[in-house]
């Protein structure tokens, strides 16, 4: 097995499905000749031709609408929104139209579309590029939202997303693209959408998280273990629908929980996770469930992002509060 980065794992997944299914089409801004601004589609146009991997004019709404139409003619579009902050331009295509295709037509027409987009902070982008807008899509019934935290998960989940007969939003944290390598099988494999993964086992406290914050949470858990606190880190992987079984099993085991997200407190999926825990497992709790998040401002301009973004220390401190409750 090869050690590869998350960006390579993503390319690998798309290539796998382009090979497996002739109906898979890949399009978006600069995904063809240029191979994507992050090279996620590097080499794919050469390998599969311009009919299947192509550049579109610059219009996110157009890309979303085109995907709906191609889906209606039996294709399986894998589209790229160049940066997730540009998704506002495509909100009608995605939340408005794509999400309701199956419902509107009683299953007669569906939308087997995968929407890929880079997002996430800490890489000094200009405005919009780093925004964590996953909450906006998660609040839309009809869409699934997947956010991998490792190369292995990214490949298996992206293959599942492309094979899914309903629309899946697949969000790729930019900081994770090339930050580390992991063994990833060359053959195709899938990871079920809607299944969380316990990334680190523990008995005293559950840390429910996703995306880049999985790694901050693991760092915090390592620090906590030095103080004799055994923290479990649950990587949601899919934030809509939530894997309630894994979340509740962990919370019932530990009796204490914090939810960690990079998004602002009023955004993301954290509040929904807390509400589900309260409804299903409140009697197992020894302490209120607390949240770690960014503050409720627009994503910080580059110079201030370091303090704005939640980190391992914030996770550590909040975990201590819950432990000492």
């Amino acid at each position: 097995m090869a050690q590869i980065t998350m960006i390579k794992a993503i390319t690998d997944a798309i290539r796998t499905e382009l090979k497996n299914n002739e109906n898979v089409l890949v399009f978006g801004e600069d995904v063809g000749v240029n191979g994507g601004v992050f090279r996620a589609t590097e080499g794919l146009q050469n390998e599969f031709g311009e009919e299947r991997v192509f550049d579109t004019p610059l219009a996110e709404s157009g890309i979303g609408g085109l995907a709906i139409g191609l889906g209606l003619t039996g294709f399986r579009p894998v589209i790229e929104i160049q940066f997730f902050g540009f998704v506002y331009e495509a909100m009608d295509s995605l939340n408005g139209q794509l999400a309701r295709m199956r419902y509107r037509y009683g299953g007669r027409w569906t939308a087997p579309v995968t929407i890929r987009a880079p997002f996430g902070g800490g890489v000094h982008t200009p405005e919009f590029h780093s925004d964590s807008l996953e909450g906006l899509l998660s609040q839309q019934p009809g869409l699934k939202v997947v956010i991998p935290s490792t190369p292995y998960d990214a490949k298996g989940l992206l293959i599942s997303a492309i094979r899914d007969n309903d629309p899946v939003v697949f969000l790729e944290h930019m900081k994770l693209y090339r930050s580390f390598r992991q063994e990833v099988p060359e053959e195709d494999y899938t990871i079920e959408i809607g299944k969380a993964d316990v990334k680190r086992e523990g008995t005293d406290l559950s840390i429910i998280t996703y995306g880049a914050m999985v790694h901050e949470s693991i760092k915090a858990a390592d620090e906590l273990s030095k103080e004799g606190i055994s923290a479990e880190v649950v990587d949601l992987r899919t934030i809509s629908p939530l894997d309630m079984d894994t979340i509740i099993a962990s919370v019932e085991k530990t009796g204490r929980c914090i939810v960690v997200q990079e998004a602002q407190k009023q955004a993301g999926i954290g509040a929904h996770v807390v509400a589900e825990i309260n409804e299903r497992a409140i009697l197992s709790l020894e302490s209120p469930v607390l949240r770690v998040s960014a503050p409720d401002t627009v994503y910080a301009f580059t110079e201030a992002e370091k303090i704005w973004l939640p980190n391992d220390k914030d996770v550590f401190e909040t975990a201590k509060k819950v432990m000492n409750f």
């Binding site: 407190k265 009023q266 503050p295 409720d296 401002t297 627009v298 910080a300 301009f301 110079e303 201030a304 303090i307 704005w308």
Partner: peptide, 21 residues
């Protein structure tokens, strides 16, 4: 620039969540 500067720039009157933050 500070995060507190950005918090101040969100609304004319700071709402309660931002006051706490």
């Amino acid at each position: 620039q500070k995060v507190t500067d950005l918090i101040k720039n969100m609304y004319e009157k700071m709402p309660i969540n931002l006051q706490e933050q």
